[in-house]
């Protein structure tokens, strides 16, 4: 009896004590991609886009706060974490755009170096 309890304990500890894989950054990435695709979707009219963007932005802001407070994210050393924390404005787009008082799409394009002038000056070519 004691022996089987000990074996069970060892098995449970070995199973449960494994590291929890942080998934918050991936969720954040998905949420941000959703907001950007809504912002860039040519099929939406202005009113519908505004409604959808507002909902997606609110969700993104909440998720960003949760991600920043998530203890597993604080211990995450994967390349995705390095990339995410290297650029606060891009990763935490909701917070950064509200902080700076500009639209998320403007901030996103600015961080990617996409200005009207540069887009107009761009030419199609082979790399």
């Amino acid at each position: 009896m004691t022996r089987s309890v000990l074996i069970l304990t060892a098995v449970l500890l070995a199973t449960v004590a494994g590291p929890i894989q942080a998934a918050s950054l991936e969720n954040l990435e998905r949420e941000r991609a959703l907001l950007i695709s809504t912002l860039l979707d040519p099929a939406l009219d202005a009113e519908e886009r505004a409604t959808r963007v507002e909902t997606a932005r609110r969700r993104l802001v909440d998720l960003e706060a949760l991600t920043l407070r998530d203890p597993t994210v604080r211990e995450d050393r994967r390349p995705i974490a390095r990339r995410a924390f290297a650029d606060y404005d891009l990763t935490f787009l909701g917070h950064a755009s509200l902080e700076r008082g500009i639209a998320p799409i403007d901030l996103w394009m600015e961080r990617l170096g996409l200005s009207s002038a540069r887009i107009l000056a761009a030419r199609v070519g082979r790399r």
Binding site: E54, R58, L63, L68, T91, H95, E99
Partner: peptide, 30 residues
Amino acid sequence: AAALERFEGSRARIDMALLEGGAAERSTYA
């Protein structure tokens, strides 16, 4: 560390901005 500091430093301002924008309710997901 810098991200956390920036997040904590701007929280009040962001909450206010969300309130002004009429998005006081948290999302279901959140």
